[in-house]
């Protein structure tokens, strides 16, 4: 048997801090709950055999879960924005907005290596690569729009002061129906995002062997010395960032 046993020097790098990991999983669970309940609210199943309305409240409960989870989702997102200003170099907000030319160059590289697969050697990046960062930035915009439309529609059903802060956006869109429509379309954005996101993390773990999948649980990634060096060389943005702080 031709077994491959190789010895290689790997170093641990603590990439995802605890708040980032908590944010990720709270966000994932709340989006899952919100999508399932939201889809049910938009397309309730047909019930043919039923008792009188006074004895049942299941649709009300589904809506309650949706609204309650929406608050968790919203404040969790606010926490992540805060962490974008105080977190480590991999969590910084500047990673997510493509200000620099180097970020766009990296997007092209990622497309070449990971999507079209023109090059076999994996691209090494300990934090998010530039394409992923831009995608996450898009999801942040979707989070904002989801919150604006969601709490905006919800404001009619609540006396609380908080949802009332979102009514202006519904007015901007021209009414509750266009707001509901946008809210519904964005749900599909999240579903498509989740499919691609889960697939790509598995893909990266599959070919790169840095432990991407488990890193969102423990926070550590594993990199060879040469990887870490390559990463830092290409990562002029993050280095510059470090120095200015």
């Amino acid at each position: 048997m031709d077994t491959q046993i190789k010895t290689a020097q790997y170093k641990e790098v603590y990439v995802w801090e605890t708040p980032v990991r908590f944010y990720h999983w709270i966000n994932a669970i709340s989006i899952l709950i919100l999508s399932v309940t939201g889809y049910l609210i938009g397309n309730p199943p047909a019930i043919t055999q039923a008792v009188e309305a006074s004895y049942s409240y299941w649709f009300g409960i589904v809506r309650f879960i949706h609204f309650a989870t929406a608050y968790v989702f919203f404040f969790n997102f606010l926490m992540r924005i805060y962490w974008g200003f105080v977190g480590n170099q991999y969590a910084r907000w500047t990673n997510f907005i493509p200000f620099k030319k180097a970020q766009w160059k990296e997007v092209v590289d990622v497309l070449r290596v990971d999507i079209v697969q023109l090059q076999e050697k994996p691209l090494v990046k300990l934090g998010h690569n530039a394409l992923a960062s831009i995608t996450y930035f898009l999801t942040f915009i979707a989070f904002v729009l989801m919150s604006l439309t969601g709490f905006g529609i919800y404001s009619a059903m609540s006396d609380s002061w908080f949802p009332q802060q979102f009514t202006w956006f519904v007015h901007l869109l021209g009414g509750d129906l266009p707001a509901r429509q946008l809210h519904h379309i964005l749900m599909w954005f999240f579903i498509v995002f989740a499919i691609i996101h889960i697939y790509l993390t598995i893909y990266h773990d599959y070919v790169e062997r840095h432990g991407v999948l488990s890193s969102m649980i423990g926070g550590w990634k594993f990199a060879k010395d040469e990887d870490k060096k390559a990463d830092q060389d290409s990562d002029t943005i993050e280095n510059a960032e470090e120095k200015t702080i």
Binding site: P44, P45, A46, I47, A53, S56, Y57, W58, F59, G60
Partner: peptide, 11 residues
Amino acid sequence: RPNYDAGLFVE
């Protein structure tokens, strides 16, 4: 409205 909260809908 009570039919809505109970999930009873005209199909």
